[in-house]
Design a protein around this nucleic acid. Structure first.
Lengths: 222, 222
DNA sequence: GTCTATAATGAGATAGAC
DNA sequence: GTCTATCTCATTATAGAC
């Protein structure tokens, strides 16, 4: 491997580490295994990273960015949903399709989360991971309310916490059982239960909201 | 440590392993650390167990038994609940109190579950763990229905899956955030949502159910 | 039967040739 | 700058004294 900047090397090693963790768990992600996966000698590892711990922190940070970039658009509705229940259901189905498409990757995320929680000096990363999920959930909930002309009957932050817990339960249960039918039933159930925490806007309110949105987007364009 | 049967040694090591895993994670549960925690020299470890892997399998098995014995009675209502919503809420609060009382223990359980899922030859233990949770949930749901004179409007097995996913999400979210208020809100929400999947028996049905119960218990005594 | 002492392995990290 | 060869340390497991 001639000519490779340190930062290129770092991202190559982070990517390789993710693949190794997905395949062999965190315990199997030795510097040797990671370097070999990245196609470089083990010694090059320490040329790019101070220590294995520094790499792991970088892996978690990388994963956070990646998730924020990939999950947010995934939550966007493919077609205009009829009501809140449908909007939530399609969002959750989309999320589930993502984890079902690459279960090993998702298990790696769960393991990294546990790793952060148990590694002294990395606890803040675990918090960050949850805060990122939470922010994502809140954004999605606000978007859904706007999309189907509804309001949340409780603080949207509270409902965001619940979305996080629901998706977390869905994920870890499915990873353990691989029971697709149960997952879809749970999504139905969750969408229904969360939708009950919203109420449709009255026609006049909906009109006002639409007008306000127009004003805002016009203003943004000007 | 003079005079200690092999089976005593095994249970002592399994107990010690659980403490070490709760404190230092699965990765920190070396044979040395476990033996030291059990107050015996490291060599005694291999006098009781073939290998570290054999111990870990035994730990998971032990945990399954322990959970079944401790969670089932914990789900029993402390006082007669007014309706299904209250019954579920008190059951879930009881469950949550259990994990909040010993978070490290619960984290150890989660880690063991992941360990089983990723260790070749131990996948069946991961399945067992979930099946045990599931069976527990179904039993609790049946008991709750009897207690408050209600019927489940969907197969109780389907609802059992959902209880497992809900408690799982509750657990891992709380372990990551330690947000008690959010946990209680989630319990409220979950109890409400699940209770909607039940309907009260009519007075005549309730009477018939009570009579049937009496017949059964009399029959059991005879 | 029990424990001290040690072998064997594999880990993270580094020195030094190129 | 890069990689080969090596160091040091901690691990599992065992041999052998008591």
């Amino acid at each position: 491997m001639t000519r490779m900047s340190v930062s290129e090397r770092r991202t190559a090693l982070v990517d390789a580490a993710l693949r190794v963790i997905a395949r062999d768990a965190v315990a199997g992600a030795t510097t040797r295994a990671i370097a070999s996966e990245a196609g470089m000698p083990q010694a090059s590892f320490h040329y790019a990273f101070e220590s294995r711990d520094e790499l792991m922190r970088e892996v978690v940070r990388h994963v956070l960015e990646q998730e924020e970039r990939s999950i947010l658009p995934a939550m966007a509705p493919t077609s205009a949903p009829a009501d809140m229940r449908e909007a939530l259901k399609s969002g959750l189905e989309h999320y589930f399709a993502g984890i079902a498409a690459d279960p090993d990757h998702e298990r790696a995320m769960l393991e990294l989360s546990q790793y952060s929680q148990r590694t002294p000096g990395a606890e803040h990363l675990a918090r960050l991971q949850y805060e990122s999920y939470f922010a994502l959930a809140v954004t999605s909930l606000r978007a859904a309310a706007e999309l189907v002309d509804a309001r949340w009957s409780r603080p949207v932050e509270e409902i965001g916490c619940m979305i996080v817990a629901l998706t977390d339960g869905l994920t870890s249960t499915w990873l353990a059982t691989r029971d697709d039918a149960a997952a879809h039933r749970f999504i139905d159930f969750a969408a229904d239960a969360i939708a009950r925490l919203s109420e449709p806007l009255s026609p006049s309110e909906a009109e006002a909201a639409a007008a306000s949105r127009n004003r805002l987007s016009t203003g943004a364009q000007a």
